[in-house]
Amino acid sequence: MIVAKNDITELERTQEALARKAQALARANAELEDFTYSVSHDLKEPLRAIEAFSAFLAEDYGDKLDEEGQRYISVVRENAVRMRDLIEDLLRLSRIGRMHHGYITISAEALVEDVCRDLAFALEEKKVDLRVQPPLPSITCDEVHMKQVFKNLISNAIKFNDKPHPSVEIACHDDNGAYTFSISDNGIGIDPQYHEKIFKIFQRLNRREDYKDTGVGLTICKKVVEAHGGAIWVEQSQPGEGTTFSFTVPKEPQRDEEAGGYQVGQGTEASQHPAG
């Protein structure tokens, strides 16, 4: 009897310690997200000034500069744009953790249509042959975040594509407890040795002058998919043979409070950040 009682006390102590660790971890995670948000947010203003004044320099003094001088200005401007894209992607990434929109059940078909409207310009410009293998099911998800997953994967399929007529195919199959979505393209493909590495933040595989990319998009996808209790991966493929990304969305997704990085009841971003 006494031994059993001691065991229980021991167990309670361990559970308490574990709960404290979990709390500390959640707090550290939240602080890190606040930090990312503040840094990204505060970088925006000086950046706007850099962009604006280099544009004014080009407008007012462009004709007084030789070719080399004009090139220097355009290097400044291009880099300001690149930095802005990076900041916006970082903000998007930190919002995934901060912003909570609640789960709703929505037709994936409608979600994809919505994404295609957002990407209409790129789809048109590159004459993309986009096929959605209907019917896509209804899924329970954070609509804003899940839309971002489809958007990133579809725009990657268009962006990393050297064919005169890029094709993108979106399919889905029912795996009992979850739906597996796949987005396939006929683009440049990904070397198998990078299939896991590409989900890491800032990881890029191509030279900047070939494909403009911040290396944040797939990190966002992974974070969202995993927060819903699913998984994301690249299907076996070779460079030059196109790429297929697959991800699962559980039919009964993990609730926010169970998922890492989600904070329940935080309706607005930057609640600690002063307006300016």
């Binding site: 947010h41 925006k44 203003e45 309706g267 607005t268 971003e269 930057a270 609640s271 950040h273 307006a275 300016g276």
Partner: peptide, 9 residues
């Protein structure tokens, strides 16, 4: 004209 995007603002 502000850099805030906060709903409460």
């Amino acid at each position: 004209l502000t850099s805030s995007t906060r709903e409460e603002d």
